[in-house]
């Protein structure tokens, strides 16, 4: 089974609100020193792929990332947890694409790879939070899409069994291939840690970079976005925290209990 996992490198999503800065002119975040991480749902997608390969007793996982050159770090991390291959999609024409443009590029790359049986993405990126790319990619590939998947297993007759989180519980689904699944987090799919030995091997693996020309994409057509961001700003909140005091934790707890009763909150 050929599995493609799409990963996005994003600015650290745990930067606290008070440290978050934007450039209002460029309508972009402006924190040049912030660390870069893989979107957390993309990491879940990678873990789902690794578990599927284990359960199937074989298969090939290709990690794909569209982004600047720094995104090679995200791909190295994927190789370190034993993804088989990685491809970086990088071109000035790929910067600032909207989700439709992103899906077009990822779709073209998957076609160039010779297609995939299962394509996994996170349910949403951890920066712009659009939650569109996985589904748009399904349209680009003419494939069905299973959203909020948290686990995958080999199904009957070359199908893929997908576990989908629903508001009331879960659905177990079987999909013919190719199929796209967008992944959500669950108790079972936090990305594993890499082994030291695999880390070193990952650094030696060649990672090809494909440009718009390599993918046969016209930069002008990609640039014609379907949306326009008119403004980006930081909202403000005005909560004032009343700290409950006391000598010991027990004193503080007593003081909190009294406050909750006084305020008729319990």
């Amino acid at each position: 089974m050929n599995i493609v996992v799409c990963l996005k490198q994003i600015i650290d999503y745990e930067i606290p609100p008070r440290a978050f800065r934007i450039d209002r002119q460029k309508k972009k975040p402006a924190m040049p020193d912030a660390s870069l991480v893989i979107g957390p749902f993309d990491e879940n997608a990678l873990e789902v792929a690794l578990q599927l390969r284990e359960k199937a007793g074989g298969g090939r996982i290709t990690a794909v990332s569209m982004g600047p050159e720094s995104a090679i770090e995200a791909l190295r991390k994927a190789l370190a947890v034993t993804a088989d291959e990685a491809v970086l999609l990088s071109d000035p024409a790929f910067s600032d694409l909207d989700p439709f443009g992103t899906a077009r590029v990822l779709g073209a790359a998957i076609k160039k790879l010779g297609g995939a049986d299962l394509v996994l993405t996170g349910r949403q990126s951890g920066d712009w939070d659009a939650g569109q790319v996985g589904q748009l990619l399904a349209e680009e590939l003419g494939a069905p899409c299973v959203n909020f998947a948290f686990r995958a297993e080999p199904g009957g007759d070359g199908r893929v069994r997908l576990y989908k989180e629903t508001p009331g519980g879960a659905e177990i689904l079987e999909a013919g291939t190719p199929v796209v699944a967008t992944v959500t987090n669950a108790e079972t799919n936090q990305l594993r840690l890499a082994k030291v030995r695999d880390l070193m091997a990952a650094n030696r693996k060649p990672v090809p970079t494909w440009s718009a020309a390599d993918l046969g994409l016209d930069p002008a057509a990609l640039a014609a976005g379907r949306i326009e961001v008119l403004d980006l700003y930081v909202p403000t909140y005005d909560a004032r925290c009343e700290f409950v005091t006391g000598e010991t934790p027990e004193d503080k707890a007593s003081a909190l209990a009294r406050r909750l009763v006084e305020l008729k909150l319990v």
């Binding site: 600015i11 999503y13 978050f20 961001v229 008119l230 403004d231 980006l232 700003y233 930081v234 909202p235």
Partner: peptide
């Protein structure tokens, strides 16, 4: 966007 740390129009 950005988990609510920013708003976009």
């Amino acid at each position: 966007a950005f988990g609510g740390k920013a708003m976009e129009q």
